[in-house]
Design a binder for these strands. Structure first.
Length: 847
RNA sequence: GCCGGGGUGGCGAAACUGGCAGACGCACGGGACUUAAAAUCCCGGGAUCCGCAAGGGUCGUGUGGGUUCGAUUCCCACCCCCGGCACCA
């Protein structure tokens, strides 16, 4: 019977659907395993990255099922987002229509891959029954001060009249029309993720099964730094302070100016008070028009101007000027810094450019850099710690001690305090867009900001038929949506017309999967308690920061709402590498896209899945090659042929019989050893290492050995195996082959489930492989009974000993020294030392 | 600049705890089968030198050094590549 994968794919996918093979229920009597791959944005077409992602998850899911776990393996759609709305603007197709169509198409593709999803639990974030819980949660967060509204600066395109996300700013201009982007202050909704900054940072330590790379990225992103906030009072109005944040309060005696960001709240007042307010404002505006990304990355030259105002250094009592400069960031710290040109490289460059004074207050300490001249002009800032000089009562202290003493002093005197600053900012979630979750808030002239009452949820997205891409959010143009009575006073009020960032949707979907049809709450806490946290989460490393930090944040919000009892939602994380073609990411514009559907048609799902797992370890990138895929297909066909050839005899055999049979030949014992060793390797590779490539290699070796064994036992004639000679078969040989094939099919089933199922059935098993158990191995059988021990002389390989396992070290040494291949290298020399690594190596040192 | 991960045959890779470097696969070469080809099955292969051959010598995991009986693996210095962060005060 020939291997016809396309037929097997259809047959078994049909069976699985029919028998609801992968649907699952809470079952406290069994250990659970929650296996999750990041859900998909329904772009319309699955790509090879998806294939790889879902294949990895499926190996774990199917394997764990066979190991007796109650496996939750769901899938869904991250269905809101800009692309659908942009398509609507361009082609006039409603986002709802295109999204539903895309989901249907992609779902078909995934089903043709044979991934073992519990499709009953499928969800799409654009379903009102899902996003109503976004709104519910938003209101809970609002009640707790975790959702709040404030003005903030955003990217603004003056031509399109809309806010742009950072990613939509290309080379400083609007991605759509090219108009230079400006920053503009707008009222926006924020989630107070910074309330959890410390915890999110600290508890990265608990994530022992996450890649270091991701943890490092998260730690950098959160960016904790310890320092002090110091108030510099305005010289002409001592009631008004400019707060600065510094990690180097020990250098404060060297501060020769204070620099504030163009966005600083005091800028407006200082402009008014300046001799030429118009010129002042023009300068500030010029800074704000500079490309934000470039400004933040330091690609723009440091520029600034003197505001004319002065502040008083609270440590020295000295009056120093206040400047505005483009290199100070409004969003970090207090938006103001004390500039210490001698001890900060940026300040140094700035001071040098504008001829401002540079005052040294830190001297290198004894064991510091000796080459740093203690006096004379600086060519760069001295940024290391050292010993304080010219610093009043603090002179002579070491930097670290000085920081503590000076922070204490500031606190006692009431003009400062020790503080911890995070780089992480609160999460701005307002989007002036249609295709997202409406923010469930109402503005009333009398009652202010009022949440939509729970019993009026969801605030459904109204039907919009015309997308222009201009003006405010499309929702703002719908009178019948905007005009609403105030829930508190019943008077006229208006709805919030912004929608939520789609990262809100993806921050908790893994909870909803546990209880996806719950109409009364986001999920039943008892059900989530059983399934969560996710045991194994697979996705692209591009989500290392955004999605994975937001989800950790949401888990803590749910925890503090009393809905979950854990803090970390994902126990183990696997970040899979990209799929490249010709050294580049597959993309339509490059014309190097390989279509999964075509590959499925040609080679079947099993070969495609096997290939993307075999070609490299999971975290690495893979380079697509058609010949590689053919190789995986060949392996499957080769396996198929072997089983096909032996099938009748194997059906009659008992796979467990091999264990009890006496009188095996050396070849038969070797095959059993290989079988058991393969089980050991494949099990560990999947479960402990997630090295799918080496697991597959191990199975290939077993198949190669089976062919070699067939040669030896069936025909004794290499090259002519499949013909005649069946009379030679020993029952013992059939038993060990039956054992090997039985193990192989089970091991292969998470990788190539369709073929494995077919073989399983042909071997006479009923009930399907998902009901079968994972094979176990016998350590004693897997262990070799004879070993080849290499012998080195002076570090060079000179001979090999074949000895029974467990040969004592003294005997190994004796055999090594007597070995004819070793002898010539010992002749006429003195043996200084013999090292015997038991069971591994004999090493002789001669002189 | 800082942080993280890498650098192994023609190519993708493997080597799990310091112990025979290159498993497995791709591409390639040879053979069997075939009228022939494809498919399949078998065999071969790091480089280099000696040898008709069997076989043997030397070198070989980015570079240079070190530790060790023994290093792809550990240590020091350096080069290169990939990813992330980056005027964060």
């Amino acid at each position: 019977m020939d291997y016809t994968p396309q037929e097997l794919d259809r047959k078994w996918q049909g069976r699985w659907a029919e028998s609801r093979a992968f649907e699952t229920e809470v079952d406290p009597s069994r250990p659970k395993f929650y296996c999750l791959e990041m859900f998909a944005y329904p772009s319309g077409h699955a790509h090879m990255g998806h294939v790889r992602n879902y294949s990895m998850g499926d190996v774990l899911a199917r394997m764990k099922r066979m190991r007796g776990f109650n496996v939750l393996h769901p899938f869904g759609w991250d269905a809101f987002g800009l692309p659908a709305e942009n398509a609507a603007i361009k082609h006039g197709v409603h986002p709802e229509t295109s999204t539903r169509g895309n989901i249907a198409h992609m779902k078909g593709q995934l089903q043709r891959l044979g991934i073992s999803y519990a499709w009953d639990r499928e969800l799409a974030t654009c379903d009102a029954e899902y996003y109503t819980w976004n709104q519910w949660l938003f209101i809970r967060m609002f009640e707790r001060g975790l959702a709040y509204r404030r003005r903030s600066s955003v990217n603004w395109c003056g031509s399109c009249n809309t806010v742009l996300a950072n990613e939509q700013v290309v080379d400083g201009g609007c991605w759509r029309c090219g108009t230079p982007v400006e920053t503009r202050d707008l009222e926006q909704w924020f989630f107070r993720i910074t309330a959890y900054a410390d915890e999110l940072l600290e508890e990265t330590r608990a994530l022992t099964k996450w890649p270091d790379k991701v943890l490092t990225m998260q730690r950098n992103w959160i960016g904790r730094s310890e320092g002090a906030r110091i108030a510099f009072a305005l010289a002409h109005d001592r009631a008004v302070p400019i707060d600065v944040f510094t990690t180097r309060v020990d250098t404060i005696y060297g501060a020769t100016l204070v620099v504030i960001a163009p966005e600083h709240p005091l800028v407006a007042r200082l402009a008014d008070e300046s001799p030429d307010p118009a010129a002042f404002r023009a300068e500030v505006q010029a800074f704000r028009l500079q490309d934000k990304a470039a400004r933040m990355s330091g690609e723009v030259e440091k520029q600034g101007f003197d505001t004319g105002a002065c502040v008083v250094n609270p440590f020295t009592g000295e009056s120093i000027p206040v400047w505005v400069a483009n290199f100070v960031l409004g969003e970090y710290g207090t938006g103001a810094v004390m500039a210490v040109p001698a001890h900060d490289q940026r300040d140094f460059e700035f001071a040098t450019r504008y001829g401002l004074p540079i005052r040294r207050v830190i001297q290198p300490d004894a064991d510091g850099d000796a080459h740093v001249e203690a006096t004379g002009p600086l060519t760069e800032a001295f940024v290391d710690d050292g010993v304080l000089a010219a610093s009043g009562p603090f002179t002579g202290l070491a930097s670290e001690a000085a920081r503590a003493a000076m922070t204490q002093h500031a606190a006692t005197q009431g003009f400062g305090e020790g503080t911890i600053q995070f780089r992480l900012k609160d999460w701005g979630i307002s989007r002036q867009r249609y295709w997202g979750t409406p923010i469930p808030m109402i503005y009333c002239e009398r009652d202010g900001i009022v949440p939509v009452p729970d019993d009026q949820l969801p605030v459904e997205l109204p039907a919009v038929t015309h997308f222009t891409g201009r003006g405010d959010s499309p929702l703002a143009q719908l009178r019948e949506f905007v005009d609403v009575p105030c829930p508190t006073c019943g008077g006229p009020a208006r709805r919030e017309t912004d929608t939520m960032d789609t990262f809100v949707d993806s921050s908790w979907y893994f909870y909803r999967f546990a209880d996806p049809r719950n109409a009364r709450q986001p999920f039943d806490p008892a059900v989530v308690k059983y399934w969560l946290p996710v045991d194994f989460y697979v996705g692209g490393v591009e989500h290392a920061i955004l999605h994975l930090i937001y989800s950790r944040f949401f888990a803590r919000v749910f925890r503090d709402l009393g809905l979950v009892d854990h803090s970390e939602p994902f126990t183990q994380l696997l970040t899979q590498g990209m799929v490249l073609k010709d050294g580049a990411v597959m993309s339509k514009s490059k014309g190097n896209v390989v279509d999964p559907d075509q590959m499925l048609q040609k080679y079947g799902a099993d070969a495609l899945r096997l290939y993307v797992l075999f070609v490299a370890p999971p975290e690495g990138e893979i380079e697509w090659t058609d010949t590689g895929l053919e190789g995986s297909f060949r392996f499957l066909a080769r396996t198929w042929r072997f089983v096909d050839h032996w099938c009748d005899r194997l059906v009659a055999a008992d796979a467990g019989a091999a264990a009890g049979i006496e009188g095996l030949t050396e070849g038969e014992r070797a095959l059993r050893r290989k079988t058991h060793d393969t089980i050991r390797r494949v099990t560990a590779d999947i479960e402990q290492r997630q090295q799918f490539n080496t697991a597959i290699a191990a199975m290939m070796e077993l198949v190669n050995d089976l062919y070699a064994f067939g040669d030896a036992t069936v025909t004794g004639a290499p090259g002519r195996r499949h013909e005649g000679a069946l009379a030679d078969e020993r029952p013992q040989a059939i038993a060990v082959v039956a054992e090997a094939v039985d193990a192989l099919v089970r091991l292969l089933s998470p990788f190539a489930p369709h073929m494995a199922e077919e073989i399983w059935e042909r071997l006479g098993h009923a009930g399907g492989l998902s009901a079968a158990t994972w094979p176990s191995f016998d350590e004693a059988v897997a262990r070799a009974d004879s070993l080849v021990i290499p012998v080195q002389v002076n570090g060079k390989l000179r001979g090999r000993l074949t000895v029974p396992a467990g040969t004592p070290e003294a005997e190994l040494e004796r055999l090594a020294l007597a070995d004819p291949a070793v002898q010539p290298h010992l002749a006429g020399r003195t043996i200084r030392k013999v090292v015997v690594a038991s069971g591994r190596m004999v090493s002789v040192v001669v002189q």
